[in-house]
Nucleic acid binder design. Structure first.
Lengths: 238, 238
DNA sequence: ACTCTCCAATGGTCTGACCAATGTAATGCC
DNA sequence: GGCATTACATTGGTCAGACCATTGGAGAGT
């Protein structure tokens, strides 16, 4: 309650302003020099406060003319990054990760099937098409994999679920990126995506749940085999 | 990939050191002045780097003699805080929150029943006892509520699940703290906790799942009614 | 009307100083 | 000798003022 650093006091004040809605996304905060003068503190302290908030994803700082510190839009990317980092540091094994995905993703898919609107569905269709094309063109479809799971989570319109799904998918992709995959595997993955998409399109929650579960299990078994073959006893990160 | 700030370069280097295991928890980094000299940069830059990492929860800085910057133990508290903050800023409604909990908590309870060791169970027993005592002494048992859900999640030994559960419980507590509760409600809550505990103790995953689901639904309905009565149309945070 | 140059605003970095906290070692009292 | 007190060295926290680097726009020149 009583911050010992000046910068912390300032940061907390601004954060309260954001939480309470007094400061809105896009709004510009005073230049470092100006706020320092106004609060009778050094520029260093203001700077440190801005830096902390930027680290949390609450501010965006730009330099140059017309630059400054702006209140950022609400975005879960920093949380996702932070969560991913913490899971990496915790040496999260791919078994743990898959366990969490098995628990979370099928229910998310079910909810997605019930809530998806036309726009959501169109976006997923576009993505799956791109992924198909990438396979035909011998490209790497993995970059689309993360996005697929994100889009499905978005259909739920549930922020906690969206954020958690993002973090997990982020980490799963990292594990997946470590192993080589054949054209057959690519085929399999996109087929599963297609089936989940079909289920969502026809508003069949149970089918979406079932197909997503099979998909995650499929990925799990491939990851398990691959890691056993390539990196015995190894974990997601180093 | 090419940080524009000097402090970012330094921060990234240290972060890589931590990720790769070259820097271990408890280890002391050079004093700001020393590292600045060594890298031929100003103390300000080093300081900013340390500050950023501290904000992410990767460092702990202490001042005074024998002070300095130390690699922090892996701890998900910063992530939890950050996630909670983002959910607040996203104006997460208690309906959304409950939806996520309904999805996550029962399966966690099931897994907890299968994995809990004697120590885990003892800790939960202690907590439930304390909670019972608090009710008899007319104290507020809510402070124990968050802890209960944390301990159950800990039984799973699954870091992603633990982190996500923490963040959700944190936020749920915040919503719960906003409403008044009667002695009857306190009774109900602790009864549910007792039943979940019993299920875990007897390794009955399905019972744990069922009781936890009922518990969350129970809380949901109470929250729903209370918010409708006290704060029509209101959400978790402002 | 278009392009180029210059400039003012603003964040980023540096220097060097002093303040504040904090653990330890020297000091002094009993 | 043992315990409380004090002094001190170390280290993060803050300050002041300067200069650098980036950036977008205003104004000059065509």
């Amino acid at each position: 309650m009583k911050p010992r650093r000046v910068s912390e006091t300032i940061a907390r004040r601004i954060q309260r302003g954001i939480s309470s809605g007094k400061l809105e996304p896009g709004e510009k905060l005073p230049a470092e020099r100006d706020l320092a003068k106004k609060l009778n503190v050094s520029r260093v302290s203001v700077r440190e406060a801005y830096r902390s908030l930027a680290e949390l994803g609450l501010l965006r700082v730009k330099r140059g003319a017309e630059g400054g510190a702006f209140i950022a839009d609400v975005d879960h990317e920093p949380v996702t990054r932070s969560l991913s980092l913490m899971l990496r540091l915790g040496r999260t094994s791919h078994e743990e990760l898959t366990e969490a995905r098995v628990m979370l993703e099928p229910p998310i898919a079910r909810l997605a099937a019930l809530r998806a609107n036309a726009d959501d569905i169109r976006r997923i269709e576009d993505l799956v098409n791109k992924q198909e094309a990438a396979i035909k063109g011998n490209g790497d479809p993995r970059r689309y994999d993360l996005q697929f799971h994100r889009l499905v989570a978005n259909c739920t319109k549930n922020l906690p679920l969206i954020i958690m799904m993002n973090a997990l998918a982020d980490l799963a992709l990292e594990a997946f990126a470590k192993i080589d995959i054949t054209r057959d595997v690519k085929r399999h993955v996109v087929d599963f995506h297609q089936r989940v998409l079909d289920a969502i399109r026809s508003r069949d929650g149970e089918a979406a749940h079932r197909e997503m579960l099979r998909h995650v299990h499929d990925v799990q078994s491939r990851l398990g085999k691959a890691f056993e073959r390539q990196l015995p006893g190894h974990e997601v990160r180093k």
